[in-house]
Computed example of a mutant assay.
Amino acid sequence: MQNIEDGFYDAFNYFKKRLPTKLSQPKIAIICGSGLGGLAETIDETVCKKVEFKYEEIPGFVSSTVQGHVGKLVFGLLGKNQTPTVCMVGRYHFYEGYSLKQVTLPVRIFKLLGVEVLIVTNASGALNKDFRVGNVAVLTDHISLPGLAGNNPLFGPNLNEFGPRFPPMRDVYDYDLRVLAFKAGSSLNFGAGAMKEAVYCFVGGPSYETKAEARFLRTIGGDIVGMSTVPEVIVAKHSGLRVLGLSLVTNMVALRKGKSADPSSTVDEEPEEPAPKHEEVLEVSKAKARDMQDLVRTIVELI
């Protein structure tokens, strides 16, 4: 097996030495997005105590610097089937100054540990006016603006032990898992239209989109937009993991052009839309935390 400079195997061995047998081969990994880390608190400890590792303690890991992202891995048994699961409470972002290899390193380690399914959650802004704040978007596809511009986590020598040089991305979000997501929402009595399929646009951040950029993203087919998820998803697909993406819509993205300063303009003036704020993202995430936790836990029970 080739030498990998990013420390995948150092972290893998670190966990193997410290995890009890029941938790040493998790089947499901969950990446918890902005304000959605409470899922780890719902792990059942009646059979086996959960085990937590701060990112700073793990070889190769870096710290999460974003408000709402705690920064720890939690291993435990989740749901009525006691499924061995690892929760990534707080993720890394490209805009924090980390390389995409650093951002996606945990996914490689999940693969080495035996993970078969990756559930990725995030918070997003709605480009599609059919969406509402509080909706849960079930991802069907994505558009990676950084990837198209030359920032892809698979750049560089291919890691042949994980996957092929040119992995297809046409079906990156597993259909059967999406079916289970809607089944789980129905069993939890989510209202009509509370869950919608969506195309996710990945942008680099940390600045929010201009109105012109937002209109462009909507024009090219984006339903929602955010600053995470896609790098991890690409690496998960390259590694042969099944992927489910869930996004909590926390704000409506401003699309209108606004008023013109040109006195000769004949364009009707449009009312200004509110500017997005990270505090708003955290507020909506907190309000919907229980729903998201119940949804993900139910999906895990159905897998």
Rank of each mutant, 00 (worst) to 15 (best):
I220L: 02
I220G: 07
G221N: 06
G221S: 06
G221Q: 08
G222A: 14
D223Q: 04
I224C: 08
V225A: 10
V225D: 05
G226W: 06
M227C: 01
M227A: 04
S228E: 07
S228Q: 11
T229E: 00
P231S: 06
P231L: 08
V233L: 00
I234M: 12
I234R: 10
I234L: 11
I234Q: 11
V235H: 10
V235K: 07
V235D: 02
V235N: 03
V235E: 05
V235P: 08
A236L: 02
A236H: 06
A236S: 08
K237P: 00
H238N: 08
H238S: 03
S239R: 05
S239I: 00
S239A: 15
G240E: 12
L241D: 09
L241T: 02
L241H: 04
R242P: 06
V243W: 04
L244Y: 12
G245E: 03
G245Y: 07
G245C: 10
G245P: 11
L246T: 01
L246H: 04
L246I: 05
L246M: 02
L246P: 04
S247P: 08
S247T: 09
S247E: 03
L248I: 11
L248D: 04
V249P: 04
V249Y: 01
N251I: 02
N251W: 12
M252C: 12
A254S: 15
A254K: 03
A254M: 02
A254V: 10
L255F: 02
L255G: 11
L255H: 10
R256G: 06
R256L: 03
R256A: 09
G258T: 08
G258I: 11
K259F: 14
S260G: 07
S260P: 04
S260H: 06
A261N: 15
D262C: 12
P263V: 01
P263S: 06
P263T: 12
S264K: 11
S264G: 14
S265G: 04
T266L: 15
T266V: 11
D268K: 13
E269Q: 13
E269L: 00
E270V: 01
E270H: 01
P271T: 12
P271E: 13
P271C: 01
E272C: 01
E273K: 11
E273W: 09
P274C: 09
A275E: 14
P276H: 09
P276D: 05
H278Q: 05
H278T: 12
H278N: 01
H278K: 00
E279Y: 03
E280K: 08
V281L: 02
V281E: 06
L282I: 02
L282Q: 08
V284I: 15
V284D: 04
S285W: 06
S285H: 07
S285G: 13
S285D: 01
S285K: 03
S285E: 05
S285P: 01
K286Y: 12
A287S: 14
A287W: 00
A287H: 08
A287N: 14
A287C: 01
A287E: 14
K288F: 14
K288M: 15
D291E: 15
D291S: 12
M292C: 13
Q293C: 10
Q293A: 03
D294F: 04
D294R: 14
L295P: 05
L295N: 02
L295Q: 05
L295W: 03
V296P: 05
V296S: 09
V296A: 10
V296M: 01
R297V: 09
T298D: 09
T298P: 00
T298S: 14
I299L: 02
I299Y: 10
I299R: 08
I299S: 11
